[in-house]
Design a protein around this nucleic acid. Sequence first.
RNA 1: GGGUCGGUGCCCGAGUGGUCAAUGGGAGCGGACUGUAAAUCCGCCGGCUUCGCCUACGGAGGUUCAAAUCCUCCUCGGCCCA
Length: 433
Amino acid sequence: MSVDPTLLDDLEARGLIHDTTDRAALAERLAAGPVTVYVGFDPTADSLHVGNLIGLLTLRRFQDAGHRPISLAGGATGMVGDPSGKSDERNLLDDDALAANLAGIVPQLRQFLDFEREGNPAKLLDNRAWTVGVPYLVFLRDVGKYITVNQMMAKDSVRSRLEGTDGISYTEFSYMLLQAHDFSWLFENEGCEMQMGGSDQWGNITAGTDLIRKKGMGKAHALTWPLLTKEDGTKYGKTAGGETLWLSADRMSPYRFFQAWIQVEDAEVRKLLLQLTLLPVAAIDALMAEHEAEPHRRQAQRRLAEELSTLVHGAEATAAAVAASDVVFGGKGAPNDGALALETVKVLAGEIPTASLARSSLDTGDVPALLAEAGVAASKGEAVRLIKQNGVSVNGAKLSGESTIDENDLLHGQFLLVRRGKKSVSLINFGKD
RNA sequence: GGGUCGGUGCCCGAGUGGUCAAUGGGAGCGGACUGUAAAUCCGCCGGCUUCGCCUACGGAGGUUCAAAUCCUCCUCGGCCCA
């Protein structure tokens, strides 16, 4: 089995290396042959989100380079809660919630890696398997003895909690030990020599490499990537509107996911292409050159959205999102109602927010009330304002204060296509007669 | 436990008896310009049966023609002392 010797350089070029243990030794080890490497994902919700994408993709990059990736679902650690990046003590998840979260996450972990690949198939493990039955005394002897409290308190997230007024529970304080134990267990039982994670995981990861070294088990490696941030340094992971970018179609529709990436600003797009897609660096450079020549075509954003949608939701859902986007944003301004085929409307209904209202809602002739009822505006007052500000169009025509809507306006006798502002489009379905 | 300062709209923060749905900033929303970008500019930004009414300035009472503003109690938070 041969490995791709350019892996580390590629990661470097993508800006994906924040820190590593002994870089020369790591490079040497990676060049020598397949390495088993893991990334942990704690089931804090029933879906992963963009914050987890780098981890998933980095594992994928390792697999594509010939190494053996392990996705670790944190069935045990998720119960305790990682204090990293948290200013408050977490609520413990009960068993049912944890099981539900795992059930949501495991398929997502699966889809990024190849579990059948000849030579270096991926593995998916749950740390609960080797954690749940460990007696406390054994844990203290085999893990706790090797890690000093001094080291644990050196961690920023722990220190800030110690200095704060609310403190930190012994449970969360112990999180680092659990993660170190995972690494040493995987090292011993799966031949896993390397752990990766976001830069906030550095302390937790090196606790593992230290434990492995102190127990005389051998040499383990670590790599962290920078947390995904925007140009201004704030955390990525939300849309401009503040929505979390979930990977689950139930939590965020493929259309909205797609749109979120289309709307990325120029300053961010190169970095996102590098870190969140599998496109070769050279291809990204070429794409960016194209983009800079004709920025209004938004080729870079489009490609980013297509690549990510395909990775997360698959080719079919991506095609539907593209089709819906073309209808909504394809023409100059609003879609042309006459040209909107019933089939297209039906595709849209699956992709954009759709409200179902009773036909009787049309009877009053009160347009603002209708918009409020459909959720286009938060209140009737807001709807009135939006109309006054020229912010609403129905079936492609701007509404004015005098506009009315009746049965004759329904597309295919059933739908209204409502645009609010530039970016937000929704459908109101009045059902068949 | 004592003292003291404070709790104002999504957030920060003015306002200390009427002129207050409440100054200002941020966020958000709409518009213009554009490229579903950025920057900039303009407007909006509690609700409604919208030239008026209702609900709101931690909670409950009270004084007053009139309270976010004064009084009482309660509650929560900061700081100081024990």
